[in-house]
Design a protein around this nucleic acid. Sequence first.
DNA 1: GATGTTATTGAGTGTGCGACCAATAAGCAA
DNA 2: TTGCTTATTGGTCGCACACTCAATAACATC
Lengths: 210, 210
Amino acid sequence: MSSSVQGKRIRKSPAARRAEIVDAAATVALTEGLECVTLRRIGEALGVRPGLISHYFPSAEDLVAEAFGSAASAELDALLPAERSGATATQHLARFFAHAEGEAYDDISRLWINARHLSRYRSVLRDRVAEQEAAWRGRLGDLIRQGVERGEFHTDDPGVTTVQILVVLDGLGAHANTDTGNRPEAVTRMAVTTAERELGLTSGTLAASL
Amino acid sequence: MSSSVQGKRIRKSPAARRAEIVDAAATVALTEGLECVTLRRIGEALGVRPGLISHYFPSAEDLVAEAFGSAASAELDALLPAERSGATATQHLARFFAHAEGEAYDDISRLWINARHLSRYRSVLRDRVAEQEAAWRGRLGDLIRQGVERGEFHTDDPGVTTVQILVVLDGLGAHANTDTGNRPEAVTRMAVTTAERELGLTSGTLAASL
DNA sequence: GATGTTATTGAGTGTGCGACCAATAAGCAA
DNA sequence: TTGCTTATTGGTCGCACACTCAATAACATC
């Protein structure tokens, strides 16, 4: 951690400072929520006066949107890398679900709920949410289309199948703030089950290919 | 609307005033969001000073929880009446989906997103959300169990099927604040499709029984 | 009509927020 | 070293919020 008391001013290049601010904001967004992304809170995290954050983000709303965008796209890259390694589409998809079912994914679910709600009031964030939704849809869609081309998956409309899987994931994630964790196996596995059914895979294929 | 300028004090019985406050709060929650349920906003809606709201709800958090509970349970009663009329379980279920697919349901979806997010910070609301989730699950579960008893539906575990349907509905509702409305038919119908599949109904049964 | 209970008001406290701006100093260039 | 650009500070303003509490007036009861 950086020392809380600032003896001397540390002057950084605009690019570096801006990146630092966005990083801190993304972390706060992920751990404490988007409404905690305030000038004061981020300034405190960086050992810097709130006014400085204002200097880089004249409108606080922009920073909030940036924080969400940064956190969401980083997570997407971790979950579904843009350039895929040599593994099969099935393996990539299996790995995706393994992450998305894990407890560590709860933070991401919380962030999505947070962003979807807050977009009701903040238009800049709303646009960013739409952008990220498109990115996630695109990335998963690409993987599925690739699987179809290779003959691993079978579906009439890869686009529809993609959205169906994402809808189930959203539904499962909706309870990230309330659920006590005692969910029937058949429910936890809904995303995988949906994928296997819609992609013409025999049940158990995804779990087996890890 | 009530006159905005209050010439004379209007003194009401505690029960009546409290009911009036909860009603106003539920309306604001549904139309403007739970964070707009403030002492000032509700006082304004009733043509009354904010202090009076404090008098009935010493902690504002309780009012927010009450507003959500009131709105959610009213909606549940409209969607799935506790005492069902003579119609078949299939008909009741079909009516439920017809409502839940309609545009008017967006307000409810928004409210649920709102409540699920806000429960991250407000424990009283969190308990209320859990309570309402149980109520919705119970009400839909009862209908499904009744349908199974009557031989209309077929499922090994009515409880699991109930939750699966609700998960899909939550997933579809998650986008209430952002979606532009251009969703493929196969996605919009996911809830009905899921229900028909999990309840052993032939496709189209629910749409046909209205 | 007088009286007492209490629903309702009015005024004030403290907190956290975004936004604004003049003053300051860090670090690069000459 | 000197100077200049500008990143950074420090302070202020206005707003909205929940919460507190003494003063007030509506209304039921006698």
